[in-house]
Computed example of a mutant assay.
Amino acid sequence: MHNTSLLVRKSSLTDARLATSDSAPLTDGQVRMKIHSFALTSNNITYAAFGDAMNYWQFFPVAEGEWGCIPVWGFATVTESLCEGVKVGERFYGYYPMASETVLLPSRLNAAGFSDGAAHRRELHAVYNQYLRCSTDPLYTPDTEDAQALLRPLFITSWLIDDFLADNDFFGARTMLLSSASSKTAYGTAFQLAQRPGVEVIGLTSASNVAFCQSLGCYSRVLTYDQLDQVSMDTACVYVDFAGNAQLRHAIHSRFAKLAYSCSIGGTHVEQLGGAKDLPGPRATLFFAPAQIKKRHADWGAEELGRRLQQAWHAFLTQAVSPEAPWLGVQRHQGPEQVLHAYALVLAGRGDPRLGHILSLE
């Protein structure tokens, strides 16, 4: 048996290659998972861009230190098991390498699934180490696996951003500026914010994506990046930065004297990522979704947190895959060469915002 994976050079994300290795034999307690499909979005590019700073390279380490394997969300089936409580044939949703298979060490097994107990993952955040049994997962529906892989991890972040802002009373502002407005995490956040009374949600995007963003119906207004002058300078606002564009961040901080909070989510504009030093106004603060999950787990308890998230997810998914006007279409990429091509496409940010990319190295 062989395992094929896509590796990228950590210092130069445009440098990617395919690697094939023999499958290692299992040791006691391990399971082998065949990875059927995974989503590739700008969120995964963010994982790579912040790979060292946020420990994303540590999940699936590569022997050659200058190379890394980008984590992705998807579905896999157990093909071999030396772990009591995990059966061959079971299907799991979770955090996988860009590969055709992976080996995990299940720990903390329960009806919902397990955590990977591998030594190199023990210090990493628990949210990324969980693998959920599709047979018992309340957010799982078998006919929407592609949409789940594409939208679910992003929407959970969106839901938490909205919850974090509401939890802080929007820092006293009522206008939210969202960059990279056509990205899935941004429009998931806008979908949630649009349900908040009295909150204006302004989407910032490139000229080519204005019509798409307007068609979603969850932005109060959609502006191009050079139309900031259409928002009054004395507007009390919050900037939710999905782009990571240093020039845009500086323009917003410079223009709005009443900028109440600056929240940095990711880096879809990889070539323009920059520091946040010497900015006027509030410090640009990186949003870390697991911290808000931990807070709400303490505030509400696991059951209530799950109930609220499940309700919001199903409402969003229904809208996103609506047969009448779907927000998302799926483009599949099968096989190593197609996966390599899809990675280059997503990295360059040239994709159609209505399309989501589902990949398989099988």
Rank of each mutant, 00 (worst) to 15 (best):
M176G: 01
D169Y: 14
R174L: 14
W159Y: 15
E200Y: 00
H125Y: 00
T205A: 08
L139R: 06
L139H: 15
L154S: 04
Q227V: 05
D163F: 15
E123Y: 05
N245S: 01
V231Q: 10
A147Q: 07
T224G: 07
V210Y: 01
T144G: 08
D137K: 03
N168A: 13
T224S: 06
D167S: 09
S180K: 03
L132M: 10
I156V: 10
V199I: 07
M233L: 14
L160G: 06
Y187R: 04
T235P: 05
T235F: 01
F155N: 05
G203T: 12
Y239N: 15
T205L: 05
D234P: 00
T157S: 07
L124T: 11
I156F: 13
P138Q: 09
N168H: 13
Y187Q: 13
T141G: 15
G244A: 10
A207E: 12
Y140C: 09
Q230C: 10
P153W: 13
G244N: 01
V201I: 03
S158N: 05
S183V: 14
T144C: 14
W159N: 02
C218D: 10
C134G: 14
K184Q: 05
Y128N: 11
L178P: 03
T235M: 05
I161E: 03
D167N: 10
D167A: 08
A211G: 02
I156S: 13
G198P: 01
C213L: 08
Y225N: 07
R152Y: 14
D146L: 04
Q230I: 12
A194P: 03
S179H: 00
E123M: 00
A211Y: 06
L150A: 04
N129Q: 01
M176F: 02
V240R: 06
A166G: 09
I202M: 00
M233R: 15
A147N: 05
R152L: 15
E200K: 03
Q230G: 11
V201A: 06
P197Y: 03
V238W: 01
D229H: 15
R121M: 03
Q192T: 13
V210R: 01
E200H: 02
A211K: 05
G244R: 02
S220H: 04
Q214P: 06
L160M: 08
V210T: 00
L204N: 01
V210M: 00
P142S: 01
S179I: 07
F170T: 15
Q195M: 12
D163R: 14
T185R: 00
L160Y: 02
A194S: 03
F164C: 14
L223P: 02
S179E: 02
S206Y: 13
A207P: 13
D229M: 09
G198F: 00
D163S: 15
N129H: 00
P142M: 09
